[in-house]
């Protein structure tokens, strides 16, 4: 469990680290995250030289390669502004594992300093921006899948649902075993496809059984997995990143 974090006052500027999955597959989610932050009167800096946080190599055990890639990101955030990451998984990597990855290296202090400025998007909107959302969307039943990294590594089980609860037209339904992993796990889905498939099968069934018409998640890995499963079965039940959902309904 992440220790209680003392949140700062709302800053004038923030950095956004968009993540590689968003860059390649869900760029709109990244732009919507930027729009949400800008609407709060915050100037968003998007360092052009960002690529990937290094997590895929890190969890696969290739720590030298992960460190090299992480090191390339460290220099991108020179000013003391918060760094907003629209992903619990990449956020957890940068907040929790950067200090581990750079322990005993010349850049350890820098890694710790960067880690201390990492915020997951929904966390930042709730705890720092104290955002107030005005819903313009239609009435619908929505299930939220909070990623395991957001839930357990970053301790953010509540922030996504808290934002959805502000949307008057949204009825948040809770699927059975909501805290259980959807089965993505990065390379896990590739190395153990059958086990992963059994997990995503149960997750999609639970979301359907809860009566959801739509699902949202704060991590694109889960979105690719759960959404990909629904699509494969030609279900109308679709999903999107919470940033896009919030922007779509409130803009």
């Amino acid at each position: 469990m992440t220790p209680v974090k003392l949140y700062p006052a709302k800053p004038d500027k923030v950095y956004v680290f968009g993540t590689c999955l968003i860059d390649l597959f869900y760029p709109e989610a990244g732009l919507d995250a930027i729009r949400l932050l800008e609407r709060e009167g915050i100037e968003v800096i998007f360092p052009d030289d960002q690529t990937c946080c290094g997590q895929p190599a890190y969890t696969s055990g290739y720590h030298d390669e992960a460190r090299a890639v992480a090191e390339a990101q460290l220099s991108l955030f020179p000013e003391p502004w918060p760094i907003i990451v629209p992903s619990g998984s990449c956020g957890g990597m940068m907040r929790t594992h950067y200090p581990q990855l750079f322990a005993g290296t010349p850049r350890e202090a820098e890694a710790r300093e960067v880690a201390s400025r990492i915020y997951e998007l929904t966390e930042f909107l709730v705890h720092v921006c104290h955002v107030r959302l005005e819903d313009k969307g239609r009435t619908e039943k929505v299930a939220m899948h909070t990623s395991c990294s957001a839930r357990r590594e970053m301790g953010l089980a509540e922030t996504g649902p808290a934002l959805l609860a502000q949307l008057g037209g949204v009825e948040l339904v809770e699927q059975a075993r909501a805290a259980e992993c959807c089965g993505f796990g990065g390379t896990f889905a590739v190395r153990h496809p059958e086990v992963s498939a059994a997990m995503v099968e149960d997750k999609t069934l639970a979301i359907e059984a809860a009566g959801a018409e739509h699902f949202v998640t704060s991590d694109c890995g889960c979105l690719m997995n759960i959404g990909g499963r629904f699509e494969h079965q030609k279900k109308s039940l679709g999903g999107e990143h919470i940033a896009s959902y919030l922007w779509r309904r409130t803009s």
């Binding site: 968009g18 968003i22 860059d23 390649l24 597959f25 869900y26 760029p27 709109e28 990244g30 732009l31 930027i34 998007f46 052009d48 496809p193 992963s196 498939a197 995503v200 099968e201 690719m224 997995n225 959404g227 990909g228 499963r229 699509e231 494969h232």
Partner: peptide
């Protein structure tokens, strides 16, 4: 075998920004 293939976006986030 169990899911649709992820679709590469036409425009990257870098380009959208």
């Amino acid at each position: 075998e169990y899911r649709s293939a992820p679709k590469l976006a036409k425009t990257s986030l870098h380009a959208l920004v």
